[in-house]
Design a protein around this nucleic acid. Structure first.
Length: 348
DNA sequence: CCATGGCA
DNA sequence: TGCCATGGG
């Protein structure tokens, strides 16, 4: 979920809409959990049932990861998937809350199915999803077999992605959420998908969705903030994963006004915010965004795919179509060979 | 979300 | 070639 309210404050002119072609040659640190959740939510039958193998194990995340990664590589966009590590203590409340929401959605999904209401069923099925350890391990295994790098973050994946981008090892963080900006990523890419059409929640309508680039500096400038620290303060007022409700009664506009007026959260705590009950010390949240756990223990290296391994894993273990997977592997190899050649040429 | 095949 | 409907596992 992340800092959804913050999105409302980011104006269109800061969201640079681009074509995939414009991202060619870039290495992007993709928030793996974010991507996997999206696949899990969207790769479903009309009644909400996810893709499953013959043993009943969900495979939607593998299908999405396999094909999207190949698509990106064909566009010469180089993904590095960053996986979440240990959940920060501060987030446990939010995790528990999401779990409860999922359980409620699961019940509604089942009831809608009984009624035969596919539309409702699908809606709740999306909310009932959750990522298991097995799914995460599956995803890592598939990436390794494909020769695509992935990084194990010590804690929040978006913090690690931000760190790698700050160092210049990656060009941007890739996620639908805005948290990477709070963690200091100079650049965020959203909507990193191939098919540019997305169904609107309400009706049978579709909108064109293009990848968008959001630069931290541009956000600060547009909101007239002096640094990232103020952006973090703003986010804390609105609600983050560590204080999901934000400050009751304070919406985007009022929050921004307060930051401009007081300059920082510290100066509000004993004044305008003195009666606010915080689930977590807000200054602790701020410190976390400023200095999250990250690691230098990673390598961004693309390897030759293991064809046999991919076939064994996807086709034999998870019942993917052999034809489709073989075509995928073929495209994958060509794309990676192209990178190899381009790098060799650059060397000489 | 993505691949695929049919149809204009 | 582009658009749409359908199935993927």
């Amino acid at each position: 979920m992340g800092v959804t309210e913050l999105g409302k404050l980011i104006p269109p002119e800061v969201r640079k809409q681009v074509e995939l072609k414009n991202l060619s040659g870039k290495i992007i640190a993709i928030d793996a959990y974010n991507a996997l959740y999206q696949f899990l939510a969207s790769i479903r039958q009309p009644d909400g049932t996810p893709l499953m193998d013959s043993k009943g194990r969900i495979t939607s995340h593998l299908s999405g990861l396999f094909y999207r990664t190949i698509n990106l590589l064909e566009e010469e966009i180089w993904p590095v998937y960053v996986f979440d590590g240990k959940t920060p203590e501060m987030k446990l409340l939010e995790i528990a809350r999401r779990k409860k929401q999922r359980e409620e959605a699961l019940e509604k999904w089942m009831k809608a199915l009984e009624r035969g209401d596919k539309e409702e069923a699908r809606k709740y099925a999306k909310r009932a999803l959750f990522l298991t350890n097995e799914m995460v391990e599956d995803a890592k295994r598939l990436l390794t077999l494909m020769g695509v790098p992935w990084v194990q973050a010590p804690a929040e994946g978006e913090a690690q992605a931000a760190y790698m981008t700050r160092k210049g090892d990656t060009w941007a963080a890739g996620s639908q959420d805005y948290d990477a900006l709070l963690f200091g990523s100079p650049r965020l890419v959203r909507n990193l998908a191939i098919t540019g059409r997305r169904k609107l929640p309400g009706r049978e309508e579709y909108v064109e969705v293009k990848p968008e680039i959001i630069e931290l500096e541009a956000v600060l400038k547009a909101l007239r903030l002096k640094d990232r620290s103020q952006l973090i303060d703003l986010a804390i007022l609105l609600g983050t994963d560590y204080n999901p409700d934000g400050v009751p009664g304070i919406g985007p506009q009022k929050a921004l006004k307060l930051i401009h007026e007081f300059g920082c959260l510290e100066k509000m705590l004993n004044t305008v915010l003195k009666n606010v009950q915080w689930p977590v010390d807000p200054l602790k949240i701020k410190e976390y965004f400023l200095n999250p756990p990250v690691t230098d223990d990673y390598k961004i290296e693309f390897r030759d795919p293991d064809d046999k391994g991919i076939i064994e894993f996807l086709c034999n273990e998870h019942d993917f179509s052999r034809d489709r997977v073989l075509r995928g592997i073929d495209r994958l190899k060509k794309a990676l060979a192209k990178r190899r050649k381009a790098r060799l040429d650059a060397f000489f």
